[in-house]
Simulated assay, not measured.
Amino acid sequence: MDFSLGTERELLANSLGRYLADKFGSEARLKALASPEGWSREAYDGLVELGAVGAMFTEEAGGYGGSAFDIAVVFGEIGRGLAMGPFLGTLMAGKVLEAAGETAVIEEVVGGEKLLTFAHEPAQGPDGRAAEPVRAEKAGDGYKLTGAKGVVSFADEADLFVVMAGSGTELSTFLVKAGAPGLTVQSYPVVDGGKAGEVVFKDTPAALIGEEAKAAQIVDQAVAAGLVALAWEGYAIMQVLRDKTVEYLRERKQFGIPIGKFQALQHRMGTMALEVEQAHSAAINAAVGLEEGGNAALRAASAAKVTLGKNGSLLAEEAIQMHGGIGMTWEFAVSHYAKRLIMIGHELGDEDYHLQRFIDLGKEEAA
């Protein structure tokens, strides 16, 4: 079977990879993390200009790609370069807009004129329980939202929010502009780089996206696209950690010989290589499932997330352990890759959540 990405996707991958290597290496990343903003808008804008966001969406929606493997290429390079920005939120929010035919908004995002994010996770109250869910009510010709969303990617930087909200007994999605009345954001840095925020809506004006109370399946497919993106980002990071660990084992000497000659470490490297290939297979399967749509997309995405959670944690731990103390230092890139890989394992549901989801979806198919 041919797993090549094709000429156009290879060109895109090369362009994004070269840009990140030239403009957003380890030194630039550390500088961005230490800045008051906590990320580099300049690097994000450069990736947008090269087509990183446009490749996520179809031509009909205002992009120039939109397939699962276009998403795979973009997020693979994001992983390799440890790029920071609202890429994941933009993808999922954009897929909701794409399904509703909201091309004007997507064109603004693809052109770099607006930042878009996805507010879908429930916020937590001070006691750790879920805060008030977001509810939508009719208000004249539009709607108003009340409630809270948590860990919204780049919430204080976003110009537009796609928000999941209860409308009656069903789910709807809404578009909210930054600075709208009743909208407040509490922003904070996240551990693996970049920013997020808790977003509160209080009678906040919002525009309905698509049909009211018809958003459940659309959101499921948007989240499936996000899981495919994470699978490919995680796979790319696993490749980097494997390669950096092999390089270190060849260079680091003990008793006058490279420690990579020690059989115990060779066995551990063999295990790492197998885990990387398993993650690759799961990522390919998730992309194929997304192309098929429906229940196949959801099951394949959950399967990939389970594989990534298990294998990614092992890769991160092994890379740190075989590098020794230096692997934990802030200045050393391995620690940043390992941290991001661990966090990917928890985004959009952890390994346990997706294992149960995979089982439940299988029961639904069999019923």
Rank of each mutant, 00 (worst) to 15 (best):
T117F: 12
T117N: 13
A119I: 01
A119L: 00
H120Y: 15
E121N: 13
P122F: 02
P122Q: 12
P122T: 02
P122M: 09
P122K: 05
P122A: 09
A123L: 07
A123P: 10
Q124M: 12
Q124A: 09
P126V: 12
P126L: 08
D127V: 07
D127T: 09
D127Q: 11
R129F: 10
R129M: 09
R129N: 10
A130Q: 11
A130R: 14
A131H: 01
A131C: 07
A131Q: 11
A131E: 14
A131P: 00
A131W: 04
E132L: 10
E132W: 00
V134R: 05
V134Q: 13
A136E: 07
E137I: 03
E137P: 02
E137Q: 14
K138N: 05
A139C: 04
A139D: 15
G140H: 08
G140I: 00
G140T: 11
G140C: 12
D141A: 15
Y143M: 00
K144E: 15
L145Q: 03
T146C: 10
T146L: 08
T146D: 12
A148G: 00
A148M: 10
A148N: 07
A148H: 03
K149C: 04
K149M: 03
K149R: 15
K149F: 03
G150Q: 04
G150N: 12
V151E: 11
V151M: 13
V151K: 13
S153M: 04
F154N: 04
F154T: 02
F154I: 09
F154D: 01
A155L: 02
D156L: 03
D156H: 13
E157N: 03
E157P: 00
D159F: 04
D159E: 04
D159T: 11
L160Y: 11
L160T: 02
L160I: 09
F161H: 07
V162K: 15
V162D: 12
V163T: 10
M164P: 00
M164N: 08
S167R: 01
S167N: 13
G168I: 05
T169L: 13
T169V: 10
E170R: 15
L171R: 13
L171Y: 11
S172I: 01
T173W: 07
F174T: 08
F174H: 06
F174I: 01
F174G: 05
L175W: 08
L175A: 04
K177E: 15
A178E: 06
G179L: 10
G179Y: 09
G179V: 12
A180L: 08
P181N: 07
G182T: 00
G182N: 03
L183Y: 04
L183G: 06
L183E: 04
L183M: 07
L183A: 05
Q186D: 14
Q186W: 00
S187N: 06
S187D: 10
S187W: 05
S187V: 01
S187E: 06
S187C: 03
Y188A: 11
P189C: 08
P189R: 14
P189A: 08
P189Y: 02
P189M: 09
P189N: 09
V191Y: 08
D192K: 10
G194N: 03
G194Q: 04
G194R: 06
G194D: 08
K195P: 00
G197P: 10
G197I: 05
E198K: 08
E198H: 11
V199H: 03
V200D: 02
F201N: 02
K202Q: 12
K202R: 14
K202G: 01
K202M: 05
T204L: 14
P205G: 08
I209V: 11
G210I: 09
G210K: 12
E211K: 15
E212D: 14
